[in-house]
Design a protein around this nucleic acid. Structure first.
Lengths: 235, 235
DNA sequence: ATTTATCTTAATGTATACACTATTGTGACA
DNA sequence: TGTCACAATAGTGTATACATTAAGATAAAT
């Protein structure tokens, strides 16, 4: 078992990256807001170098934009951006479902591993009954993450998580506004069944439709939002 | 028409990024090779700061790996990596084909724009007759790039290009070894027809199969290669 | 009062000095 | 001769000084 030599001292660049990323995902900054390096330097009490290195990473992840000589800006997410991102996630997660269903039919997945999908599905169904929206959202996230893990494609997982991060803000602000997630919960159950029965095509189709519905749902909300307020919180 | 204020002075970080990227894609370094910052500093005649900033970007693109306190390493591509990358490209490009076919049926694409697909298809067919492998590969690349452009999803395009960069080295070394591209050329023609007739499902299926075949072709070559030589040039 | 030119300021971009640590080499001891 | 401890070295990580430039302020001219 290969164990990589890990330094127990985490670099300041890495620490800065994680901290700033958490600040952005935690909606500590407004969409479009400019962030001065100085502010981050003072907030994290480290020098500019690791701050800058962290920001370059965050730019590559699409969370911020660095305009040359102008500074760092929190990237807003428009409806058009949402459309792009959900189409990508649709395709990638459907691919993950397909790969996983194939693994099932080739007996490359144990029952214990499938529980990582079963458990959050059950939790979603429970949360739906008790109308616990937050618990539902967490189980939903857990399900999709487990699917990405189980498919085994690390790059695919990283890619989806990158886009997930980009829409995190929108999902955060729209959680209460989204419709009752009963449909969505049924989708998960159906997807799990398709995967279990080793049907790649069906699994992919279900996931694809699942995400396309979610996309339309969010786009509708954004549209409504933009009609009642000039400056929506996410774009 | 919004024109972004562009400084005609390109930053050294950006210059370093482009230069080092070109060096990697041009196979100036071996897979797995360690590159000292010092070497890049001397080669580009700039200080360490922009070099480091460029390398962070290249790491995010998957072209190099920065091991803490150990240095910069050119990322090798294994068969497993190829498998991951081609599955992702399959899914994303199939999505692009789907979106484009939908645009056709909604009359959102002009004939002039479709020529960006027609021209490289014709060029592939010509190159196939004259057995000009290099011209064929260029037309192939042009076709896939045009598809990404026309689908209109910039993030999708950027994502595919990122993975394209990761497999660039392998494709470079295997161009001669890959089989006759007549099958592949037929795929392009069929894909173009499906897009023209506004059939998203068919277009996506064709592209999906197209990439899956390409994947298997490359994996077979890599396997053969690894049997005759311990150190293949790409992994 | 408005516009334009110039100057000032403050922020980012780059170079470099310093800090820290992984690696390598040397020598003592078994 | 082989192994371990320790020191020397070289390379990466971080802080900071300096360079450059965009944005804002001030003042002059119309």
């Amino acid at each position: 078992m290969e164990e990589q030599a890990r330094t127990n001292t985490i670099s300041l660049s890495e620490k800065a990256y994680q901290t700033i990323r958490a600040l952005i995902l935690g909606n500590e900054f407004r969409a479009g807001e400019q962030i001065l390096e100085k502010v981050l330097v003072e907030r994290l009490s480290i020098s500019r170098t690791p701050i800058r290195e962290a920001c370059i990473q965050l730019q590559k992840e699409g969370l911020i934009e660095i305009r040359p000589r102008r500074g760092i800006y929190i990237k807003p997410i428009s409806a058009a951006d949402m459309n792009e991102i959900y189409d990508i996630m649709s395709a990638l997660e459907a691919q993950a479902a397909k790969v996983l269903a194939n693994k099932i039919s080739q007996k490359k997945i144990t029952n214990k591993e499938l529980e990582k999908l079963e458990t959050p599905t059950v939790n979603m169904e429970k949360a739906l009954e008790t109308k616990n929206l937050k618990a539902w959202a967490e189980a939903d996230e857990e399900f999709h993450l487990a699917l990405l893990e189980l498919c085994g494609n690390k790059r695919l997982k990283e890619a989806v998580l990158k886009y997930w991060g980009q829409v995190h803000r929108v999902r955060y602000f729209t959680l209460e506004l989204r419709g009752q997630p009963s449909d969505s919960t049924d989708d998960h159950r159906a997807l799990l069944d398709a995967i279990r029965s080793g049907n790649p095509r069906k699994a992919a189709d279900i996931h694809e439709h699942h995400r396309q519905k979610a996309k339309q749902n969010l786009l509708d909300i954004i549209e409504k939002f933009e009609r009642i307020t000039v400056a929506s919180p996410f774009c």
